[in-house]
Simulated scan of single mutants.
Amino acid sequence: MSELTIEVLKEIVEKLPNDFIVEFKDRNGSTVTVSDDINVKISEKKLVLRTY
């Protein structure tokens, strides 16, 4: 599996309706909702999403 780039993330998000919630499945199969606590690490070129 490859890493998600910001270009691909932008393409995905632009197509989502405004009332959608971002979730993912962790390694244990549990569903995790992404919180609004987002960090941008410019020196590391990372967008860091936190769990809700």
Results as ranks from 00 to 15, higher is better:
Met1Glu: 14
Met1Ile: 12
Ser2Ala: 13
Ser2Asn: 14
Ser2Gln: 12
Glu3Leu: 10
Leu4Trp: 09
Leu4Gln: 15
Thr5Gly: 13
Thr5Ile: 07
Ile6Asn: 09
Ile6Cys: 05
Ile6Tyr: 08
Ile6Arg: 10
Glu7Lys: 14
Glu7Ile: 12
Val8Trp: 01
Val8Ile: 11
Val8Asp: 11
Val8Arg: 14
Leu9Val: 09
Leu9Arg: 11
Leu9Glu: 09
Leu9Asn: 13
Lys10Val: 11
Glu11Arg: 15
Glu11Phe: 10
Ile12Trp: 09
Ile12Ser: 12
Val13Asp: 03
Val13His: 08
Glu14Trp: 02
Glu14Cys: 07
Glu14Gly: 07
Lys15Gln: 14
Leu16Gly: 11
Leu16Gln: 14
Pro17Thr: 15
Pro17Lys: 14
Pro17Val: 11
Pro17Ala: 12
Pro17Arg: 12
Asn18Met: 07
Asn18Pro: 10
Asn18Trp: 03
Asn18Ala: 10
Asp19Leu: 02
Asp19Lys: 13
Phe20Ser: 15
Ile21Val: 10
Ile21Met: 02
Ile21Lys: 08
Ile21Glu: 09
Ile21Gly: 01
Ile21Leu: 02
Val22Met: 00
Val22His: 01
Glu23Pro: 00
Glu23His: 04
Glu23Met: 00
Phe24Val: 07
Phe24Pro: 07
Phe24Ala: 10
Phe24Tyr: 10
Lys25Tyr: 01
Lys25Asn: 05
Asp26Gly: 11
Asp26Val: 04
Asp26Ala: 06
Arg27Ala: 02
Arg27Asp: 04
Arg27Gly: 07
Asn28Trp: 04
Asn28Glu: 12
Asn28His: 06
Gly29Ile: 01
Gly29Cys: 03
Gly29His: 05
Ser30Ile: 06
Ser30Gln: 14
Ser30Phe: 03
Thr31Lys: 12
Thr31Ser: 08
Thr31Trp: 06
Thr31Phe: 05
Val32Asn: 00
Val32Gly: 04
Val32Trp: 02
Thr33Pro: 02
Thr33Gly: 00
Thr33Asn: 03
Val34Glu: 05
Val34Cys: 08
Val34Tyr: 03
Val34Gly: 04
Ser35Tyr: 08
Ser35Pro: 05
Ser35Glu: 03
Asp36Arg: 14
Asp36Lys: 09
Asp36Tyr: 10
Asp36Trp: 00
Asp36Gln: 09
Asp37His: 12
Ile38His: 00
Ile38Cys: 05
Ile38Arg: 09
Asn39Tyr: 01
Asn39Arg: 07
Asn39Ala: 06
Val40Ser: 02
Val40Phe: 00
Lys41Gly: 03
Lys41His: 03
Ile42Leu: 00
Ile42Glu: 04
Ser43Trp: 02
Ser43Val: 03
Ser43Tyr: 04
Glu44His: 07
Glu44Leu: 06
Glu44Phe: 04
Lys45Tyr: 10
Lys45Asp: 03
Lys45Gly: 12
Lys45Pro: 01
Lys45Phe: 06
Lys45His: 08
Lys45Ala: 13
Lys45Asn: 15
Lys45Trp: 02
Lys46Asn: 01
Lys46His: 00
Leu47Phe: 12
Leu47Gln: 10
Leu47Val: 15
Leu47Cys: 09
Val48Tyr: 00
Val48His: 01
Leu49Cys: 08
Leu49Met: 14
Leu49Thr: 09
Leu49His: 08
Arg50Ser: 14
Tyr52Leu: 07
Tyr52Lys: 14
Tyr52Ala: 12
Tyr52Asn: 13
Tyr52Trp: 00
